[in-house]
Design a protein around this nucleic acid. Sequence first.
DNA 1: GTAGCTGGCTAAACCGGTTTAAACCCTCAG
DNA 2: CTGAGGGTTTAAACCGGTTTAGCCAGCTAC
Lengths: 346, 346
Amino acid sequence: MSKERPTIADVATRAGVSKGAVSFALNGRPGLAQTTVDRILAAADDLGWRPSNRARSLSVSKAFALGLVITRDPEVLSSDPFFPAFIAGVESVLAHRGQALVLQVVTAGKDEAAGYRRLAQDGRVDGVFLSDLRHEDPRIELLTSLGLPAVTLNRPEGSSPFPAVCLDDRPGTIAVVEHLLELGHRRIAHVAGPPAFVHATARSAAFVSALAAAGLEPVAVESSDFTAAGGIEATRRLLALPERPTAIVYANDRMAIAGLGAAQQAGLTVPDDLSIAGFDDSELAEFVHPGLTTVRADPYRFGEAAAETLNQLIDGDGDVDVPDVELPPARLIIRRSTATPLLEET
Amino acid sequence: MSKERPTIADVATRAGVSKGAVSFALNGRPGLAQTTVDRILAAADDLGWRPSNRARSLSVSKAFALGLVITRDPEVLSSDPFFPAFIAGVESVLAHRGQALVLQVVTAGKDEAAGYRRLAQDGRVDGVFLSDLRHEDPRIELLTSLGLPAVTLNRPEGSSPFPAVCLDDRPGTIAVVEHLLELGHRRIAHVAGPPAFVHATARSAAFVSALAAAGLEPVAVESSDFTAAGGIEATRRLLALPERPTAIVYANDRMAIAGLGAAQQAGLTVPDDLSIAGFDDSELAEFVHPGLTTVRADPYRFGEAAAETLNQLIDGDGDVDVPDVELPPARLIIRRSTATPLLEET
DNA sequence: GTAGCTGGCTAAACCGGTTTAAACCCTCAG
DNA sequence: CTGAGGGTTTAAACCGGTTTAGCCAGCTAC
């Protein structure tokens, strides 16, 4: 009943074999008689033996952990609905395999590269998730040069050596626009995310093309920054337009909810005077007044798929070609914030 | 220019000394001539040597990592404003010391203990943060038996072997009540968090006692669950009361914002018909309409302090008595959602 | 002149696994 | 009877650090 946890040597002596044999047995490698394997397994069980991650890490040069670097300012990150659910999905995969998730939150800028570099050089992780892809994303080259396996969330623009797990934002965005068109809207504006982000431009491109398909042009496309404060400002600019839009499509819920507040503060009634749609279906979307029409993806599933793909890549050890994964696209959730515009002026 | 990273042995041969000497020099231990130390340091520098975390972990039996277990359902966690900022604060401390943060998101219930157990038994971390303390929290005993150092966020009820980092919620709550009393409210209700949580009951106790100090009793105290959905329901119950409250104090912003939506949907004007106050000052609080009166803490600073305290505990190795830390209390942020009640009926 | 001490350094064990090369045992063929 | 060969098992090296015990040179003390 010693306090010390048993090592593989303890198991070996108890089973009357060598360390090596124990290692073989526990890793299910061939070359041992079945009776011996059973005896070793029983001994390990009796002793309550659990392998030491540290020793294993050292000898096989693996960390048994995956990394996620989140590049955001704390206050922006603060109410992001994506990452918590994504992380939960990742963990659901890691838990089975005894892996851990190492998280790094870095502020934008120089810190970012340092964050990945640290994870790689300290050997903390066997691979990382690459989220919030940007155009000409420097991280792809960085990770290649660091030799750190990665999975990208959605597909980067240029060629990428990494498998991608994709959840297409465009169908959802298009569905929003079509929904508004059906309601009779013709003057529709968009509040986009920062153009540096691939998913931000993907959404705004989808917005524009959906309108174009109906022979329309956007009233305006405002670039914003995914924050509530940014949403407010963009909304004010849009509402000040001579030809005020009857509907605004936001690239995320936070900007949309803030925009909703701004519209109400300006004396407008949503949805009568202005229809508003978001993106994410964050928790509050359903409960603000009026309930926010939005687009729902499944970040939990996203996390699962990303973790599985990254593990395939790591297990394959460079030899296997891991295919991209396409997740079911986000879909439209219609609530009360969108309706037929009250003051029709065709 | 080999691809392999240099080991301590490479440094040793280059400096013409033994491995041990290199180790001594790099850890700044006495017993080496200054000239030798300089030579070794120069050699290490030339080679771009960085210590292997894995080897160090194995030989000194440390993980050089801290752990955070978040026990929440993904969708509840999803819009929590506390953790992201808290984590950022933690990281700001860890980055300097080359430590990593290991995150585990577990669903409530059996999983929780397993989560801590895994972190401990796999030797993933040197200590953990204990957040969302509950009454009679079983985790304190669990961690004690696992021998895992910890820091509690706020002080648990019973005796605890762990240092506590505290941010008192009560002054903020009291300030909210006093603010409402000054505005002339007399019928004030509270929507509390789950009574299992220490911080939930702390806030509701502060609420009740602040009213009592003015010789009043709460109209009602509804127990809810910190979610938007729960906030909606609690609000509906309160609004259905024969003696409808003129103000509702919520234990967090999410419930408050949802409650705001519920009130508006019920045809009430906030703040004229009903004043609403939250807790957290989450990003959206400022931007909903009307802006939410709330209480602002500093989760980033909380994270910093918790990480520093936990590291003191770990470095002290059980010998040192680490003092509790008291952070500046949360303070009231007054916005438009609170005002003098319109229909006075003294 | 030798014992004793001390500062400076090395060799080797150690952490707890994995992995390789070799040894062992047994059977069967030549 | 010997050699080959296959199935089992072991001893030892290895991963890359830390740490302990001990060696050696030079100085002081008696």
